[in-house]
Design a protein around this nucleic acid. Structure first.
Length: 803
DNA sequence: GTGGCGTCC
DNA sequence: CAGAGGGACGCCACT
């Protein structure tokens, strides 16, 4: 308060003096200007001083205004600076006071009490073990356990401290015996309006400020069977995030927030982050200490920034939600709590604001933060209690969770943390090259159009192509607008030069904006590498997705595009190894359909597209033409995606009835496939879901839809999901076993990327052969299907070469 | 924020 | 008779 009003006073003074100076300057200017004008025109000075010439007056007033504007600008800048200085002074003041207080306390109180006064700005040289008072304050601990109303934990406290059990004055109730929580009433009914957690009936949240409180909670945490755990940080970017606080949930409604790095003027004294983390480290790294979290991979990352390898990540409510129903669009805690608990949680934006005004979590008041963070841990535990029984009711899903999704978490964490090295110089050089070519193409395109226009605006392009040049419209967008997409432009290419120019421009523009410009920006300053994020709960089929940057859509199809891959390089002394499953989805189709012909083709390790062509076109294997093979390939992929004869015709540029003939021929030669497709559709209709080989479920509510387009969409998903999903399961299993093998040995090789059917590793060159052999072996052994899994592997000095 | 387009498997 | 290819992420223009 005091410093603020002081600042206001001094700013008023500053403003006053600046306006004064501005006024004086303006008057001086007026005098000089009058004198100069008098000399120039030979008129009397006094006439010029009090001139009636409006333009002259206007000019001088304009100058006055500019003067004052400058003064104002200066004042506001000075004001901001002043506020900053005041803030620092205030922080120093607090620091000094806390220091004094500490010195006083040193004389009178025990060490544990001293720690209570640690301010975040006062680093103390303390060892983590100093934080546990020895012996623990039994009375305080018992009080805490009683306050928590958790009898089992009270017992633990008593046993741990060796104190005689003494019945509390009022009998503490076990949580299980509590009156029905509001959560119990919500049940599965997602339509029930969410309710806020009532307070204090079902909640008892604490904020840990003192060493004694921390010591007490440590005993509780270290002895609990399962602890909900969450971190609060300064950033969503896991490589930059700093820990601001930690929260722990022990039972439903019983949670604590431990703030360690809230930094704002007037922030309460907090325990030191370094000391707290060092003391928690053994528990965090203990694989037997089971934790439940929501998106634990993130917490694992931020702890890794402090040298802590989070272990014991037994349950993740985000993944539980995903495994239970992967079709849900979102699996963030707010959505899942609303859906399964009927609870409306405090949102991050409620405490930190949103948009440009959003503050980082260390600026959030400890009171607000504690409420939010403790609730997070609490809700996580409640979610686990709600979701796990649902999962356990379906053995296939429990197995999927335990053997695939959960063990995959540390693998992904390691991959992301390792990151990928990219040659930024090469990318920048390519950007320059592309820019030159694009400028030339743009100029030509404007010439062809007869006037300049925004070449990358589909709307303007549509106007030019279809209204001005009167080219025929062949394709429409979903909103019934004439399309300017690749197919449409390609069809117009023989009628006019412009479409081809646009196509060339677009392809370069895409490469430049998405890859050669963006990738260098994404290099982490600390590691010099790119750290993507793999999302484990996004794709409905079970696939991973990647973002920031997306490393799963790096170009490969065109020669120009492939050059981007040349910028993905190993670190010195290493080689990139790329291993991918050959035709994995078709092999899965063979497995699922048990079609004899298809099984045989794979058993004999045939080129499956060639074999398909031979069957469909009735020619010998060696007589299959390139064109026939291409058609067969289109049929094969079309089948995987549930494509119709219409789509196939369009894809191949043939008549619809001809495409229909191919499809019929295919089904005649591979009757098992036809039967499987029918079976799958029926199953989807009857059960409402389809399954992968490993039990992953994909629910298809639209399979019963009245609206034909929705129903057909669901049917295509039903056909595609078991194949795409099984492939996803298989590579996930492979990642787990490859990672396991790498951890056992000492090759120094690391998995650095996954692209749906491909793994990329960075391998020390001397051990390349051994790693390649074992990675190939482990990937092929990831599943035991009716057909062998084939893995192709290559290596090189960049990702392009490795293929 | 939405639509159009384009990249990958 | 209309609509007729699964799953992602990201950039740009436009509102």
């Amino acid at each position: 308060m005091r410093s603020q009003s002081g600042a206001k006073r001094s700013s008023a003074r500053l403003f006053g003096s600046m306006t004064g100076i501005a006024a004086i300057l303006a008057i001086v200017y007026w005098l000089i200007e009058s004198y100069a004008h008098a000399r120039f025109t030979g008129t009397p000075f006094i006439d010029n001083l009090f001139t009636k010439d409006l333009s002259l007056i206007g000019e001088r007033f304009a100058f006055l205004v500019i003067m004052i504007a400058f003064a104002g600008f200066y004042v506001s800048a000075a004001w901001r600076e002043k506020v900053k200085v005041d803030r620092v002074a205030r922080a120093d003041e607090i620091k000094g006071k806390v220091g004094e207080k500490l010195r006083d306390n040193l004389q009178q109180i025990p060490l544990s009490k001293q720690l209570a006064t640690i301010h975040v700005n006062v680093p103390l040289k303390l060892k983590p073990e100093d934080l546990v008072p020895a012996p623990p304050d039994v009375v305080a601990l018992k009080k805490l356990a009683e306050a928590l109303e958790i009898r089992s934990l009270l017992r633990v406290v008593e046993e741990t401290t060796g104190a005689a059990a003494e019945a509390p004055a009022t009998e503490a109730k076990d949580v299980a015996e509590q009156p029905a929580l509001i959560t119990g009433e919500a049940g599965d009914d997602a339509s029930a309006p969410p309710v806020r957690l009532p307070d204090p009936v079902t909640r008892h949240y604490e904020t840990i400020f003192t060493a004694e409180q921390f010591a007490a909670w440590l005993i509780l945490i270290e002895n609990a069977e399962l602890v909900a755990f969450d971190t609060e940080t300064t950033s969503l970017n896991y490589m930059e995030a700093e820990i601001v606080g930690l929260s722990f949930g022990l039972a439903e409604g019983r949670a604590a927030y431990l703030p360690v790095a809230h930094r704002y003027v007037g922030a309460p004294e907090q325990l030191d982050r370094g000391v707290v983390l060092a003391r928690l480290k053994p528990w965090l790294e203990n694989a037997d200490a089971q934790k439940v979290g929501h998106h634990l991979k993130y917490d694992a990352h931020v702890l890794a920034n402090y040298g802590i390898r989070l272990a014991g990540m037994r349950y993740d409510s985000m993944l539980e939600s995903y495994v239970l129903d992967s079709t849900a669009t979102r699996h963030d805690m707010d959505s899942v709590a609303r859906k399964y608990l009927g609870l409306d949680t405090i949102h991050f934006e409620d405490v930190a604001g949103k948009g440009a005004k959003q503050i980082t979590f260390d600026q959030v008041s400890v009171e607000k933060a504690a409420e939010y963070a403790a609730e997070d841990a609490d809700i996580t535990l409640r979610l686990h209690h709600a979701l796990w029984p649902k999962l356990e009711a379906i053995p296939g899903l429990t197995r999927l969770y335990d053997t695939i999704e959960q063990p995959l978490v540390p693998v992904l964490t390691r991959m992301e943390e390792t990151g990928v090295l990219v040659d930024t110089r090469l990318l920048r050089a390519m950007s320059g090259e592309f820019a030159g070519k694009m400028a030339a193409l743009e100029k030509e395109a404007h010439n062809e159009a007869g006037h300049p226009f925004n070449i990358s605006s589909p709307k303007q392009l549509q106007e030019v192509l279809y209204n001005e040049l009167k080219l025929p419209v062949t394709q429409y967008t979903p909103t019934k607008q004439p399309s300017t997409n690749e197919d449409a432009l390609a069809e117009l290419a023989d009628q006019h030069r412009l479409p081809q120019l646009i196509l060339d421009y677009r392809s370069l523009s895409k490469l430049k904006s998405t890859y050669t410009d963006k990738l260098p920006e994404q290099v982490c300053a600390r590691t010099g590498r790119i750290h993507t994020s793999y999302h484990q709960a996004v794709a409905a089929t079970g696939r991973l997705s990647s973002s920031d940057p997306n490393l799963q859509n790096i170009p490969i199809r065109t020669a120009e595009g492939r050059r981007i891959r040349q910028a993905f390089i190993p670190k010195p002394g290493c080689t990139l190894l790329a291993a991918d499953y050959s035709q994995i989805e078709l092999r899965i189709m063979a497995h699922l359909s048990e079609d004899e012909g298809l099984l045989k083709a794979f058993a004999e390790d045939r080129d499956v597209h060639q074999a398909t062509a031979a069957e469909v076109f009735g020619v010998a294997l060696e007589d299959v033409t390139t064109d026939q093979r291409r058609s067969a390939k289109a049929i094969n992929f079309g089948l995987i995606y549930g494509m119709s004869a219409f789509g196939l015709a369009r894809q191949l540029g043939i008549a619809r009835d001809e495409a229909q003939k191919y499809v019929e021929l295919y089904f005649a030669r591979y009757p098992g496939v036809k039967a499987y497709m029918d079976r799958t559709r029926t199953q989807a209709r009857e059960q409402g879901y389809v399954e992968t080989v490993f039990g992953r479920r994909l629910y298809l509510p639209d399979i019963q839809a009245r609206q034909q387009s929705r129903r057909q969409y669901a049917e295509r998903s039903a056909i595609n999901a078991p194949m795409q999903g099984t492939a996803a399961d298989i590579i996930k299993k492979a990642m787990i076993s490859v990672d396991h093998w790498l951890l056992q040995g000492s090759t120094g090789a690391e998995i650095i990327m996954q692209v749906h059917d491909e793994l990329v590793l960075e391998v020390p060159t001397p051990v390349l052969a051994a790693v390649q052999q074992n990675v190939t072996r482990l990937m092929a052994a990831a599943a035991d299907l009716r057909v062998p899994l084939k893995v192709d592997a290559g290596h090189g000095a960049n990702w392009d070469e490795a293929h």
